[in-house]
Simulated scan of single mutants.
Amino acid sequence: MDVSEPTRLGEHELSDGRRLACAEWGPADGVAVLLCPGVATSRRLGFGTDVVDALGVRLISVDRPGLGASDPAPGRTLRNWADDVDEFAAGSGIDDLSVVGYSAGGPFAMTCAAAGVADRAAIVAGADEFTALEQPLPADLRNMVDAVAADPAAAEESFTEFGDPDRLWSLITAFSPETDLAVYWEPRFERAFRQAMADGFTQGPAGYARDTALP
């Protein structure tokens, strides 16, 4: 598997003065595909970066507000993310955008598609959108979903207290099947993934907490 460093790093200033930090792989004039990363991870971890040049894909990953190097946006919602992406795409000269959501990035990708910001969307391992699942959830996940629904502010505060890259890594690996662990524990991938998660917490846990309790 390829976990190469981004080809290009940059920032885009939004109309309200906030900065969104981005990373890119592949040709700058390629077909634009936006990656919405998983839980608390930064823009620096892409996917398929060994084939984007051959496919003519411009893979773009953007730190969500408050994560990595993107400025925070207190009180933000999922729809606000679609608005940010719309403005980012327009300012980056992108008029035909596809979006991929990985894991906890799934709801952010779906929001972009629902808002018409992205023309095509794909979700990879999107089980983090627990409220969309029809089958009964394990008790601990059901309790978490119910807590967010009952008191979003209190839930966000509890996620802030919990938020830590080492704790999240332990949680991810504790509940992952063997097929996923074979990837997570591959030395190069583990190093890149954990670095991306550490980057995600550069500004502290507030961005992760807001992501997890977003309305």
Rank of each mutant, 00 (worst) to 15 (best):
A192T: 02
D199R: 00
R142C: 06
F130H: 14
F201C: 09
G56D: 05
L214T: 04
E157Y: 07
I172H: 06
M197P: 05
A125S: 13
G30D: 10
P136I: 02
A174N: 06
G30R: 12
W185N: 15
V57M: 07
H12V: 05
D180R: 14
F130M: 07
E157L: 15
S15C: 02
D128E: 15
L9V: 02
S103K: 10
R64T: 11
A32P: 13
D2L: 04
R79W: 03
R167W: 00
P152I: 02
L59N: 10
E5G: 04
V57A: 05
G105Y: 01
A182E: 15
E134W: 00
D86S: 14
A109W: 03
V31D: 15
G26C: 05
S42C: 11
D140Y: 03
D128P: 14
L78G: 12
G75W: 01
G91I: 00
R191P: 00
G66P: 07
A69E: 15
I123W: 08
T111A: 12
R43Q: 03
A153L: 09
V57P: 11
L14M: 13
G116K: 01
A139N: 09
Y184G: 06
V62E: 09
I60V: 12
A174T: 07
S42R: 02
A149C: 05
A32K: 06
A153H: 05
V52G: 05
W81M: 07
I94E: 03
S42F: 06
A104N: 11
T77E: 08
A198N: 05
S15Q: 06
D151N: 09
P65G: 14
P165M: 04
R64H: 11
M144L: 11
R210K: 10
R43H: 06
V62C: 09
E13S: 10
E161V: 13
